[in-house]
Every structure is written in structure tokens, then in C-alpha cells.
Simulated assay, not measured.
Amino acid sequence: MNGKISVRIDGPIDNAPPLFLMFHGYGNDESEMVRIIDAVYAGTSEQPDYLSFRGTYSRPYMGGHYWYPDGCGVDERQRECTAVGEALTQLIDAPVFRNRRKVLIGFSQGGYLSYRLVKSHPYLFDAAILLSPSFQGEIGARLPDSYTRFFLAYGSLDSTIPLQDQINARKVLESSRDFVHHEYPSMTHAICDKEIADIRDFINNL
């Protein structure tokens, strides 16, 4: 896992708040997820602890980064996610992170990556917040036994993620022990205020 990491770790080690591990969408960078988590905590006295990662590959000419090539096959997509997972698990095995509650949060490609991380490491993450994730190639998939809690959200007008992929994401995550799903009217492939509020409620109930 190459590239830049945006870090904020201010909480105490004992009784620490969740550590957020954040993954942006295609064509963006680590600041995308920082803006989202800052919005979730806006108006509170808390400062979230996070590692926000920049995608493995940079986009030539147009800027931004990605975790796997747009339009790539299922095998390549899963292989790239596995490589990120191997690097991530080595990083968070450090003593400063080892006993923290770990919450994945990702948008679009980053949402799919977060799902694959739980699938490969079912006992490592306490929760996964999947915002408009791509889910191509996961038809008929099931999650392994895991205590990870899932939050899944899409906009009702999201044409970037095919409807069948959205339906399949719900079906796959319904096999988990703890799953909530939200759909936001009139929202496209984006983030809305109600979604931010729902994420805040989900985190407060972890």
C-alpha cells in the first residue's frame, strides 16, 4: 500500500475512541474521507482518531488516485484489495493500534475495499461503514462468521453503481450478524446531510 496517509491520533490509549481506517473513492485522495469524518464530528467536542489512506495508483493527466483500475475484472479488483489488506494489517499490528476498536469507512471504491478487508480479516474490524460501494463480482458471495457491524448507504438516484450491484450488496451484508441499510431520496453518487447524521448515530452506538 503506497501513497500518502493523513493521520490524526490524539485520543488516549486507555478507553480510547474508535480508530477510523478510511479509504476514498475513484479519482479522489485521502482528504475526501477526512472531510466526511470531520462533518460527522462537527459540533461536538470530540476529535476523531483516523488513518486516511491515498489510493495505490495515481490517475495520469486528470489527477486523483484509485485502488484498482476502473473497469478491471473481478480477479484483479480482488487481488488489489488483498494487497492493501496485507499492508494494512501489518501497519495496525503496531502496539499503538493493537487494542483500539477499528472502524473501516470507505466511499465507492473505498467502500468495496472496506468490505473485502472484512471478508479477508473477519475478526479484525469492529465496524465497516460502506458509502455507495461498488459491488460488481460479488453475486452469491457470503461473509464469513464475523462480529463486524455494517452500515450500508446509497442514494436513490445513484446511477454510478448499477442497481443490481446495490441490491446484491444488501443481500451479501444481510448474512452478517449486524447490518443496517439506508437509502437517501434524490441523492446521486454522493454524500448528504442525513447520511452524515446517520453515520454519527451508528458510531455513537458502537
Results as ranks from 00 to 15, higher is better:
Pro18Val: 06
His182Phe: 15
Tyr115Glu: 02
Ala16Ile: 06
Lys119Ser: 12
Ser186Cys: 11
Ala128Arg: 08
Val7Cys: 05
Ser58Gly: 07
Lys171Ile: 11
Leu152Tyr: 03
Ala190Met: 10
Gly155His: 03
Val180Ile: 14
Tyr112Gln: 08
Lys194Arg: 10
Met33Ser: 01
Tyr184Trp: 09
Gly85Met: 11
Ser114Met: 09
Gly27Met: 07
Phe202Met: 11
Leu88Glu: 07
Ile139Pro: 00
Ala141Pro: 04
Ile105Ser: 02
Pro133Ser: 00
Val172Ile: 12
Glu30Leu: 02
Arg149Val: 12
Lys4Phe: 13
Arg200His: 08
Glu138Ile: 07
Phe202Ala: 05
Glu86Val: 14
Ala169Met: 10
His181Pro: 03
Cys192Leu: 06
Arg100Cys: 08
Leu152Ala: 05
Leu157Asp: 15
Ala190Trp: 15
Gly106Leu: 04
Val118Asp: 12
Cys81Asn: 09
Glu30Lys: 04
Pro12Asn: 00
Pro133Cys: 01
Gln136Pro: 04
Ile9Arg: 01
Asp198Gln: 00
Val172Met: 08
Phe20Asn: 00
Val34Trp: 07
Arg170Glu: 14
Val118Phe: 15
Ser52Ala: 11
Ala190Ile: 00
Phe150Ile: 09
Arg98Gly: 00
Ala169Ile: 08
Tyr115Asn: 03
Asp178Cys: 14
Met1Ser: 11
Ser159Ala: 11
Gly71His: 11
Asp165Gln: 14
Ile13Trp: 04
Tyr61Gly: 00
Glu46Lys: 05
Phe125Glu: 07
Arg100Lys: 14
His65Val: 03
Phe53Glu: 02
Thr89Met: 15
Asp165Pro: 06
Ala197Gln: 14
Leu152Asp: 05
Asp14Ala: 07
Thr82Val: 10
Leu157Thr: 10
Thr89Glu: 13
Asp178Arg: 14
Thr82Gln: 13
Tyr61Ile: 12
Leu152Lys: 05
Phe20Pro: 00
Val172Gln: 08
Thr82Lys: 13
Arg54Asp: 04
Glu174Cys: 10
Ser58Val: 06
Ile36Glu: 02
Ala94Val: 00
Ala42Asp: 10
Ser31Thr: 03
Met62His: 04
Met33Lys: 01
Asp158Val: 08
Phe23Gln: 01
Ala197Gly: 01
Asn99Val: 02
Thr82Tyr: 13
Ile92Glu: 04
Glu32Gly: 00
Leu152Arg: 04
Gln47Met: 07
Pro69Asn: 09
Ile196His: 06
Asp198Tyr: 02
His65Glu: 06
Gln109Lys: 02
Gln164Leu: 11
Asp93Asn: 13
Lys102Asp: 07
Tyr57Ala: 05
Leu19Tyr: 02
Gln109Asn: 05
Cys81Asp: 07
Tyr184Ser: 01
Ile13Met: 07
Gln78His: 13
Gly85Ile: 11
Pro122His: 10
Pro48Thr: 02
Ser175Ala: 15
Ser45Lys: 11
Gln90Val: 12
Ser146Asp: 08
His182Gly: 02
Ile199Phe: 01
Ser114Asp: 04
Ser146Cys: 15
Gly43Tyr: 10
Asp201Asn: 08
Tyr57His: 15
Pro17Thr: 01
Asn99Asp: 14
Phe179Ser: 06
Ile129Pro: 01
Glu195His: 05
Ala153Gly: 13
Leu131Glu: 05
